[in-house]
Nucleic acid binder design. Structure first.
Length: 490
RNA sequence: GGUCUCGUGGCCGAGUGGCUAGGCAGUGGUCUGCAAAACCAUCCACAGCAGUUCGAAUCUGCUCGAGACCUCCA
């Protein structure tokens, strides 16, 4: 298969043909979570988006090294507890060790990602484990003259950097002159030459728990250092793809570029990819807005916004039904629709196993496959891919009811296509049913259904309907088929 | 205020200068003793105004509306 993968590059604001630096190897770095709280729907978006990218690149036979970090230091807060680390703050509040908090939420994040069938990255480095690398990079930037020391901290000299390279703002489109007049007043500004300078090493107040000794005093690395240092360590000073949420575009990613450029003399990344936000009532779902719903709450239905529980695969389908660069608006109605669509799709996929083959085909599997690849090659267009998968659904159902025919050869091809796109690339898994989990219950239901069948044969519909109503009332769903009744626990 | 993005049918959500995705809901069928389920078919659209064009929902301009970033955020 000829590879014509096209990726929308935030840097150029255009779709570009994907050419890796060292094919067949591909290096990809994605900003992971800050582990000081449970993952919410917003975290599922980049998780699933870049899982799709990872899976598709692998499907195209690229050898991908996918690095997704865990942020467990840094990220200053700017509320009342200024200058305090988020992790450290939570630790003090609950009287736990910072690393205890980190471990707890990291484990929970992993559990959620597993539930969503998000593949594990190749490397998942922690910021706290790479302090030395970050300090080395700070030193490099200082040596190159793009940073200055002040009150035990080290700041990046944005103005100087921009004068020399003209590159500040190349990713986010920010204009330095605008920033000069628009940067918010923050404390500690007097330590900086310019308000838009950012810390690459931050002096730690005595009560600050997470701290490391450095040539510049006790402190911790600045907000954006970890991604620059860790991506360079594991992927090299220049690598192929850097991903993350759109909200990280500025200042985080812009600063990453500046840091790497200042340290290494060249830009770090060829393709910048940004997933859009999940909204609720048209507003961004986020920690700071307090309108987020955690993934666990989705899976259990335990949030006042939710009418019901939604399975991880429903969430995955819901997110993949929108293109990653569009916002996706959460609502019970939309999720319910996703749930039904997902079930219908998977039912047809399961049906594929016992389909009858014919001498000749009346369906076109080859062009279906081509359309699927075309969709994915066009900047990972999962919604269009899904529309083609639903063509396949219709195809399978039509063959099943005899209105279409498929040859042995096409049948095998169709299986390959479904397997590749539905399972391997889109990453869906068949969810096991709850029914039959309790053997005793199963026996009882089977007995009742047998009685009902008998009543039906005797045309005693009163009795058969009574049995059905009673079972439904008990939460047992009945589905009549040609070969008798099937049941499941609702 | 600055920068940027978007506005598609009842809901969600793709896309292209003309052949007008897909899912859910609705409607009509098939199946069934009835129902449910399932399957098949099908209606409904491109914020408003003006312009470019043989032709625009798709290009340009304006108006209105929504959102994101500018501060930690996926």
């Amino acid at each position: 298969m000829e590879n014509k993968l096209v990726i929308y590059n935030t840097l150029s604001r255009k779709k570009e043909i994907f050419v890796p630096i060292n094919a067949p190897h591909v290096g990809m770095y994605v900003c992971g979570p800050t582990v000081y709280g449970d993952a919410h729907l917003g975290h599922a978006r980049p998780g699933i988006t870049f899982d799709l990218v990872f899976r598709y690149l692998q499907h195209l036979d690229y050898k991908v090294r996918y690095v997704r970090n865990i942020t467990d230091v840094g990220h200053l807060e700017n509320d009342a507890d200024e200058g305090e680390d988020k992790i450290a703050k939570k630790a003090r509040l609950e009287k736990l060790e910072p690393m205890e908090i980190v471990q707890y939420f990291t484990d929970r994040y992993h559990k959620n990602m597993d539930q969503l069938n998000v593949k594990k990255p190749s490397i998942e480095p922690r910021a706290s484990g790479h302090i030395i690398e970050q300090m080395e990079m700070v030193k490099k930037i200082l040596d190159n003259g793009y940073a200055y020391k002040s009150h035990g901290s080290v700041y990046f000299d944005v103005e100087k950097y921009h004068k020399k390279t003209g590159k500040y703002g190349e990713l986010s489109g920010r204009v330095l002159d605008d920033l000069k007049s628009n940067t918010r007043e923050l404390s500690g500004q007097d330590e900086k030459r310019n308000p838009f300078d950012f810390a690459i090493w931050k002096n730690a107040a005595p009560e600050h728990i997470m701290r490391w000794t450095s040539p510049w005093g006790d402190g911790f690395p600045g907000w954006h250092m970890e991604c620059s240092a860790m991506s360079a360590k594991y992927l090299g000073e220049k690598f192929d793809i850097h991903g993350g949420g759109m909200d990280l575009l500025f200042p985080h990613h812009e600063s990453e570029i500046a840091q790497s450029q200042a340290a290494n003399g060249h830009s770090p990344v060829n393709y910048w990819m940004h997933n859009n936000m999940v909204t609720i009532d048209g507003q961004k779902m986020g920690k700071s807005l307090g309108n987020f719903i955690t993934l666990d709450e989705f899976f259990s239905g335990s949030h006042e916004f939710l009418n019901q529980a939604y399975t991880p695969m429903t969430i995955r389908f819901f997110i993949l039904q929108a293109h990653y660069r569009s916002t996706v608006d959460f609502s019970n109605e939309a999720l319910k629709a996703a749930e039904k669509g997902y079930k219908r799709m998977m039912k047809a996929v399961a049906l594929l196993n016992d389909i009858k083959v014919s001498e000749k085909s009346t369906v076109d599997v080859i062009s279906l496959e081509e359309k699927c690849y075309a969709a994915m090659n066009d900047d990972f267009n999962s919604p269009v891919l899904l529309s083609h998968i639903f063509e396949a659904v219709k195809m399978i159902n039509s063959i099943n009811d005899g209105s279409e025919k498929i040859s042995k050869q096409d049948f095998l091809k169709l299986k390959t296509v479904i397997n590749a796109f539905v399972f391997e690339i889109l990453g869906f898994v068949a969810e096991q049913k709850e029914s039959g989990s309790n053997e005793k219950l199963g026996e009882v239901v089977e007995k009742l259904l047998a009685l009902r069948q008998q009543a039906k044969q005797n045309k005693d519909y009163k009795t058969s309907d009574d049995i059905r109503d009673a079972l439904i009332e008990a939460g047992i769903k009945i589905k009549d088929t040609r070969d008798g009744a099937e049941w499941s626990v609702e």
